[in-house]
Nucleic acid binder design. Structure first.
Lengths: 146, 146
DNA sequence: TCCTTGTAGTTGCATATACAACTTTACAAC
DNA sequence: GTTGTAAAGTTGTATATGCAACTACAAGGA
């Protein structure tokens, strides 16, 4: 890309995460208002588990792009909230396999509804093809840097 | 926007801030490697002050889209690092005016160089017009939710 | 002058993150 | 088998965030 882009001062907002902060706060707010007591970070863990249970913490770290230390504490909190449980892998005693509890499983539909609501609120007045381009651009950014 | 967008599973990454996490980590890493001892959050405060000194904490909160409590602590840390100082406003003793120190002012060019480097690394293989659309989309998201 | 209301900033508490150092377990080389 | 190395997870420490409750000050009206 050319340097001309950098002339736009507002471009640095890319770096300060204003949009992400806004969306993350709104997601948390929507969860709260729907009576769901989880953070937006916990949501990303649960989302991975709704897709596939029995993941190791390392696998969750990779999929959610978080440090394994962050996963340790997120799982601590989710376990305290009785939404997931750690099960030591008998085949490899170094690893914990993370499973949803019944309560954790039952949150799925309500959470997805709030996630979709949040996206809809965020993307008012944004054309579909622009959403698609923004999404693809962020994906490329992520791939460039990870 | 239509619901078809939501079919794309990867779209939820929008909500988990993968791209922002990646860019924020890389920015911090680039600062460190350049011998600059600040976080990416502190950077956003300094950036505002390089544009205009003597802002109140509330004004910094508005411009960086952070809670005023976050600003209190960021300024605490920046003051401890001797990059900024609080000056009580004589005209309104409730407010602090935040000024850069000489050291804080001298970081500007080095920091901007690293910020530009980070953006360049993030946006390899992204077309200029896609960058522009992504930027505008994120701006709209921010405006929709704030 | 006193009272009410609003604003700026701080503090307490819970949560989340990064990095380094550590423990435990697995596994391959010898 | 013993040893060396690597991987998974945890813990300590520093930083950052959100929300609620608080203090201090300002400004307008009775």
């Amino acid at each position: 890309m050319s340097n001309s882009i950098f002339q736009a001062k507002e471009f640095y907002d890319f770096l300060t995460g204003k949009a992400y902060t806004a969306i993350s706060r709104r997601l948390h707010k929507n969860f709260r208002e729907a009576g769901i007591d989880i953070t937006s970070e916990q949501w990303s863990i649960l989302y991975s588990l709704w897709e596939e249970e029995g993941l190791t913490q390392q696998e969750l770290a990779t999929r959610t792009f978080r440090e394994k230390t962050a996963i340790t504490r997120l799982i601590n909190n989710l376990e305290r909230s009785q939404l997931v449980i750690r099960v030591v892998d008998k085949a490899d005693r170094r690893t914990n396999l993370i499973y949803l509890t019944k309560a954790g499983r039952s949150l799925k539909e309500k959470c997805l509804a709030q996630a979709n609501k949040t996206l809809a609120e965020a993307l008012i007045h944004v054309k579909d093809d622009h959403v698609r381009i923004a999404k693809d651009t962020l994906k490329t950014v992520y791939e460039n840097l990870s």
